[in-house]
Design a protein around this nucleic acid. Structure first.
Lengths: 187, 187
DNA sequence: ACAATAACTAAGCAGTTGCTTAGATTTAAC
DNA sequence: GTTAAATCTAAGCAACTGCTTAGTTATTGT
């Protein structure tokens, strides 16, 4: 016996996520979210509790968006080649027209401080660790090497992927492709 | 016929730089700078014009601090080994006790937006390009390969270095050392 | 039609942001 | 000792931050 919500929560979160991705967490104000999501502040707080809540939902949505290329990685039996494909897919995923926005997770890890945003930081670390595990899984497909060596390779690849998130804001596409080539050259 | 400044500008910039490094650009307020630098806001604006001015001076100071390990790189005739040494030196340079603060320049590149801080962004890009050039110079020492290939290697190394700045906030020291080893393994 | 309930709008909260201004204080040449 | 200039302190500016609250509007079962 009450009024219906005039907005779809998933739809407004997608808009919020895009704003956070472009803008970063701290420098995205609730007023900006209000405009972008197209709903009043009251509705934001009613649906998501607070700004942190909006961001946590945004990461979840980001995850579902990434799902398609993660699925490709999970289903791939190409070992390290599957990971290389993931790098290229991610680059395309993070493109917005001519510019690259980097990775929402990486951007935010670099921006926020653990002390002031422990909940968000924990969510971001979980996200990263999850991707590293996928790398380990894929690397194990190639041969039965020492687990230590495989984990070291996964760390090396994570480092390259994190770097790519920053590099994509500085270098042009051709250079980025070259970096990916060289990253996988000896694996 | 006037009063003397009660503070040394270089000394207070060092303190400002450390704060920016720990905290980031946007989330370091002028009130915080006031406390850390130990001088009044009026004095900050009198000496450095505005917050942006304080930061630009901070990068300059950061540069002089980096100078000693950059010098080692410039004077080195070890080619790619000199660059590897630079990676390790940098890690030590960016350490504060048990935690790694990453690179002031990389941190800020990732934080600010080109549209709202074009002056700062330009200074940061100049800084990065400068280091890339040093990599190119060192790589040329090893042999007379194709310039294109050397530049591609320099980009690859820059990507790894940028990644290391983020990785150092997530991984432990041992893992970081392993990443560096693997980055240079095939060069 | 009516009452109950949830969603809406918009104004307002205290605290913070970068920056400025008014006025007191210190220095140094004459 | 007087005067002029630079430096100091501290209060204050408008705009913004995340978040809340008071009051209006729409939707529902009865």
């Amino acid at each position: 016996m009450a009024r219906k919500k005039q907005y779809n929560e998933t739809e407004v979160i997608e808009k919020a996520m895009r704003l956070f991705w472009r803008n970063g967490y701290e420098s995205t104000s609730v007023r900006m979210l209000e405009k972008e999501m197209g709903i009043n502040q009251f509705s934001i707080y009613a649906s998501f509790k607070n700004k942190e809540g909006v961001f946590l939902e945004s990461i979840k949505f980001y995850n579902t968006q990434l799902k398609s290329i993660i699925d490709t990685l999970e289903k791939s039996n190409n070992g390290v080649l599957g990971i290389k494909e993931y790098f290229l897919d991610f680059l395309e995923f993070s493109r917005e027209g001519a510019i690259f926005k980097g990775c929402l997770v990486t951007n935010t890890v670099n921006e926020i401080k653990e002390d002031s945003n422990p909940v968000i930081m924990a969510a971001l670390k979980r996200f990263s660790l999850n991707i590293r595990e996928l790398f380990v899984r894929n690397l194990k497909q190639d041969d039965e090497r020492d687990v230590k060596e495989i984990e070291a390779q996964a760390d090396y690849l994570m480092n390259a992927l994190l770097g790519l998130s920053i590099s994509s804001k500085v270098f042009n596409e051709e250079t980025l492709k070259g970096i990916i080539e060289m990253t996988f050259l000896h694996l």
